[in-house]
Design a binder for these strands. Structure first.
Lengths: 206, 206
DNA sequence: TATATATCGGTATATTTTTATCGATATAAA
DNA sequence: TTTATATCGATAAAAATATACCGATATATA
């Protein structure tokens, strides 16, 4: 069964919630999950039904089974090689952040045009000159690119990534990127988040 | 007219596109914007109609007028005081990032439990001990809190923020936070983004 | 064993969001 | 001036998403 994007977005929350349950909890109901995550119980049941057909009346779902199914659907068991372009504050923070491994994302290195940034980080990862990018990606068979450059450079980097065999781009630059239809561009839309927060505050008369 | 969340999410893209146009472009059509941002022209027209009634047939919209209206609706002209809790890599990156000012977000300082983190950053902003949090917020009348702690600490910080008068929370910890209904919690759902990317790569047989 | 109950899963309905269609209109060109 | 065209804005349709309802069922309790 295909999983819609809306559903997909909620799955990580389910997984996280299930993982932090005490280990003696063997079964859990959609109702309980829904209450904890401020969602409707029917919605949760429908979501879980998309990825795992194994719910039992009165009992609920097997926690272990759900976790397995969620991790499979979410691809956390995959190993995705990634590189970062833009070794500014955010880029470096991501390069050094070990937490992405949990999601199957292995960040190999970062790249930057600024020669002052080239070198090795505290945690032992490398920042290479951008000129090495294409060769590095084809040799390491990198499929995922993270863009943490300023907006003005992002489209150019996006093009470079496409040329270098990258198939999915995680974009943190506040700009709309254009690429072929076979390339997935996921925008981390911080400006939109901020706008929602700001609007909420304004509404309250702050 | 009220602006739905879906619409709100697209507005920053419109604004950014309009701002980077050459200054001699006085008018622009929804069709043109749509083509540039890979959206439907009717959708763009409907969105713009939510925030600005001033489109003329054949001519389009006044660029200047649209920018004004967008900035007003998005609240970029507001001044929102914010603080960060969690002075790790991401927290520090955000603390030092000047780009948020453009969106009306003024980050005053960061807080952390770790006494080794306390001090002043390169750009002159302070990292205070968490024990000072509540007093700082009430004195400075801070309304927006950014959470960049590990997941295990996030709910506790969320509670602290609510007690301290904060009305909107920008949460980067990968966990669902619970707060009163008058508090807006905006989750920056990186895990969900990653899952979508990973699923796309898996689908392509990588 | 018989009954009660919480929960699932399917169907139906409601809501939200997006896309399509069409007449009206301002500008440009003939 | 007349005609052609690009665009708007309104209405309608379609698609996606979320919610409500209800019978079936596995477990618990009397």
């Amino acid at each position: 069964m295909s999983v819609s994007i809306s559903v997909m977005r909620r799955l990580p929350a389910y997984l996280h919630y299930l993982k932090q349950l005490p280990p003696d909890v063997e079964n859990i109901s959609a109702t309980t999950i829904a209450a904890q995550l401020d969602l409707g119980d029917v919605l949760v049941r429908k979501d879980l039904n998309c990825i795992s057909g194994a719910g039992k009346p009165r009992t609920g779902y097997s926690v272990k089974g759900l976790i397995d199914d969620l991790e499979r659907v979410l691809g956390y068991k995959n190993k995705n090689l990634a590189v970062i372009v833009g070794a500014g504050k955010l880029g470096c923070a991501m390069l050094e952040h070990s937490g992405f491994e949990e999601y199957g994302l292995h960040i190999l290195a970062a790249f930057d045009v600024d020669s002052n940034k080239i070198g090795i980080t505290d945690s032992g990862k490398y920042i290479y000159p951008l000129s090495d990018f294409e060769e590095f990606c084809s040799q390491a068979d990198v499929r995922l690119g993270v863009i943490t450059t300023p907006a003005c450079a992002a489209q150019e980097i996006c093009d470079l990534m496409c040329r270098s065999g990258i198939r999915a781009i995680w974009n943190f630059a506040p700009i709309h990127l254009t690429a072929g239809k076979d390339i997935l561009i996921q925008n981390e839309n911080m400006a939109a988040s901020l706008a929602l927060l700001s609007a909420h505050l304004a509404e309250m008369g702050c």
